[in-house]
Design a protein around this nucleic acid. Structure first.
Length: 227
DNA sequence: AACCAGGACGTGA
DNA sequence: TCACGTCATGGT
């Protein structure tokens, strides 16, 4: 009988073997067409401030929204501003909202993005703490941790709804586990490592999209048999 | 045609 | 703390 921490390590091995490196966080590589946004086995992103901003805005835009819709919004913003901080902050409110409209909740998300960019500008090159991110209106734990893990490459584990479903199904957390409970389990099971945390989170999403999106969950999920 | 998508906030118990 | 309504668009 493995311990929970051992099962988490095993889970990573199984998922990586099954799905391979995922190449998160997706980044628009050109203005040609957003087909090749992933970059498996390349952990060098973001390369500059514009890519960092693109990742952070993607993290906000994807709140309760499919990535497919977020791509459209990011595409519109890229055409308008190339993710230049000044151009984003100077963009007309109506144009901004129209650009991000495909991602839904555009009134709230506009506000969230402006608040984030204003704080970002104030920080200059400094890396924000988790607490500083959480103090920004519109950034909850998942969005803050996504920005830290992918945009700032800090070794913090991102917990999303998919991850909770899988961990609960495997009974590795309590049935109504909190964000902190799940995060604590992951981070005490896997030694802090940015690249691994990025892959693991992306792998959990990849697996959950297949087996944990429609109820009843985990219909053809083999994980239980291999842990 | 209902259901959901890589959540977070505001409110009232 | 916690459950519930709200925010909005577009896939399947």
């Amino acid at each position: 009988m493995r311990t929970k921490k051992e099962k988490i390590k095993q889970l990573y091995k199984i998922l990586f073997k099954e799905y391979g490196p995922q190449g998160w966080w997706p980044i628009m590589k050109s203005l040609e067409k957003p087909a090749q946004n992933y970059h498996p086995q390349d952990y060098s992103f973001p390369h500059n401030q514009k890519e960092l901003i693109e990742m952070a805005l993607g993290a906000i835009l994807t709140q309760n929204t499919s990535w497919h819709q977020v791509e459209k919004a990011l595409w519109n913003l890229k055409k308008l501003t190339h993710f230049s901080l000044n151009k984003l902050l100077q963009l007309e409110e109506e144009s901004f909202k129209n650009a991000i409209r495909p991602a839904g909740y555009f009134n709230q998300k506009f506000k969230k993005i402006i608040f984030f960019l204003t704080a970002f500008q104030k920080w200059k090159k400094k890396i924000p703490s988790r607490q500083e991110l959480l103090e920004i209106w519109g950034l909850g734990p998942e969005t803050a941790d996504s920005i830290l893990l992918y945009a700032y490459k800090r070794p913090i584990f991102v917990i999303d709804a998919y991850t909770q479903r899988i961990l609960r199904e495997l009974k590795l957390v309590s049935p109504n586990s909190s964000y902190d409970e799940a995060q604590e389990l992951m981070m005490t099971s896997i030694a802090p490592n940015t690249n691994i945390y990025q892959e693991f989170h992306a792998l959990l999403v990849a697996h959950a999209k297949r087996h944990y999106s429609k109820k009843p969950y985990a219909q053809n999920c083999e994980l239980k048999n291999h842990l």
